[in-house]
Design a protein around this nucleic acid. Structure first.
Lengths: 205, 205
DNA sequence: AGTTTTTGATTGACAACGTAAAATATACGA
DNA sequence: TCGTATATTTTACGTTGTCAATCAAAAACT
């Protein structure tokens, strides 16, 4: 019949090459340099070749985001696997790692959270890696509940912890913070605040 | 000599018309619909006319962002002017108003914080309105310090408060929160956490 | 072996984008 | 009325994402 159809592995390999090129271009020269033709040059093929492996540019970008989430999830999972004195210090370590990752790779963090346009499907690889990235923090908070360090709903408190680090990182990366130096102190405080909020507190008004 | 040059007021009026049209287009059909030619149609003139009043599309977009910040600043200042029982309840009210604004006008909030590309100048109308929007929160925290509700650096704590509400709102608007309902509870908790963090606490580890 | 058929990759083209340059319209001082 | 400085439009160029048509290659059947 036909020329031997591409294996699933071959397809996945090519998808990975394209995602690699796109990730590289984005990290190197920013979003507006992420072009179909630029990707094609990087790959060494025609601009239309990518269309056989992706639905279009948005799909490629979604793949880039999923990869960024995957690397972030790897990072968080590694911290979660490491030994910690107790649940609270584990949570603090996860928060530190979260911030460190975002500041070490601001482009990755931006592509994960900032350039999110509505209309992307909630399922697929992106959702899966996003869940992976979120799980360590959630489990750490649940552990704090199990050890009696936390009174309320773990889901609520985990979201609160996430919002604190995410908010500070986002404001920092977009240049909104008014304090030039002393940012380190600010991050210390947000970590301390993470731990403080998981102590039993009076019910909110 | 020449045909009478445009007055400063006329120029400002035209700039406002363009900003109006751009704001409207963005809120109505999203970012990708914000086009030079679409603005021109909305205004009723040629696509190149806007270039006499703005440096280009980025400049127009910056003006849209400045306007969004201005409306947000108006909102915050109104809350700050109102009467409150004490400094802590004033801070809580500002936090509530922050969240309410962001959820009521997600497009405005997004244009303020999400689509921020590096390279925009830090001065001008945008920076001015951004400062206006930030000041009420900062002053409220400073008042908490003055009333002995807060031990540390007001600048640090104000940034922390900002990060908390901004982080939660941003995660919510980008669809990252895992809790379908119960979001109201989450926002209640972040407000409570705002107040809790301005109580004297032990020095961070 | 030669032809057909199926699949992958390329080329060409199109509409839309931002915007530089050239051309045109407009209104006042002479 | 005419000249000139200013406001606006027209034209055009390079780039973008992507559809349609074309090309290339390789396995299967005659």
């Amino acid at each position: 019949m036909p020329r031997s159809a591409l294996t699933t592995e071959e397809i996945e390999a090519f998808r990975e090459r394209i995602t690699d090129a796109a990730t590289h271009l984005f990290a190197e020269q920013g979003f507006e340099a992420l072009t179909m033709r630029a990707i094609a040059i990087e790959i060494g093929c025609s601009p239309m070749t990518a269309y056989r492996y992706f639905d279009g540019k948005d799909d490629i970008f979604t793949s880039v985001r999923a990869r960024a989430f995957a690397r972030f999830a790897d990072n968080q999972e590694a911290i979660a696997r490491a030994k910690h004195a107790d649940a609270r210090s584990k949570l603090a370590a996860l928060g530190r790692a979260y911030i460190d990752f975002a500041l070490a790779e601001p482009d990755s963090y931006r592509v994960m959270f900032e350039l999110t346009q509505p209309g992307v499907s909630a399922d697929g690889e992106l959702a899966e890696q996003g869940l992976r990235a979120w799980t360590p923090l959630y489990e750490a908070v649940r552990a704090c509940v199990a050890e009696g360090e936390l009174a309320g709903d773990p889901l609520v408190h985990a979201h609160l912890c996430w919002a604190k680090v995410h908010g500070l990182v986002t404001l920092h990366l977009s240049g909104k913070l008014q304090m030039g130096a002393g940012i380190g102190e600010l991050y210390d405080c947000v970590i301390a605040d993470l731990l403080q909020s998981v102590r039993p507190v009076a019910a909110p008004a």
